[in-house]
Amino acid sequence: MGFLSRTMTVVWKDLMVEFRAKEMLLSVLVFALMVLVVFGFAFNPVEHDLSDIFAGIMWVAYLFAGTLGLNRSFMSERVNDALQGLVISPIDRSSIFLGKFMSNFLFMIAVELVLTPVSIILLKYPFHKGALLLGAALLLGTFGFAAIGTFLAALASNTRASEVLLPVLIFPLLAPVIIAVVRVTDAILGGDVSGVMPAFRFLAAYDVIFLAIPFLLFEYMLEN
């Protein structure tokens, strides 16, 4: 069996675990919805036009939800030391990382597929066109988040305060993605696509770098 099919085995396992514990996906979704509702109460979309800050609100909800999801993804590996079961197997250490990354990425995308239309409706955003570009922005931003997030969640799961530590680690390191993806989402939703390509290039560069480095470092992080 090749590298890719073993990676897919890890993804398959993660999705199975996810599917069995449906309440996890649901509670992450509900949490993200609550964030949106809180913003709704705070800014009152009936009286105010939230177009200017809509992209920011959306991403805050995604990132909070995503962080919750990442924590859980490695918590389930800690029960029975299950991650060790992967470590004793002959698969490449980096394919463990890649598998965990892919399942976290898919999880986030699933959350965003539900949340994006809901937030457009809930916050009364006048959305007309650019769905394709918006999709691309979501993919690129989520990719970077999942890449560095998977690595940091793996690190944080070995500490005494992982639930708190993960957000502390992730948001500063993710600042470039947050800045770029919120700007570009804002631009796409506002119908101004002139600055989209440079932002996409920047995001793609970040994605590649922060997938590659953890990929190389992961083997050192697994030993005990």
Binding site: I148, F151, L155, N158, T159, R160, L165, V168, L169, F210
Partner: peptide, 25 residues
């Protein structure tokens, strides 16, 4: 965040390795 990790990670060597990963990235 790096200092927090150094302070809260479990196990001597594991802590050092995790912190090193963070110091690099």
């Amino acid at each position: 965040g790096y200092l927090f990790t150094q302070m809260t990670a479990e196990g001597d060597e594991k802590r050092a390795r995790i912190a090193a990963g963070l110091g690099i990235i």
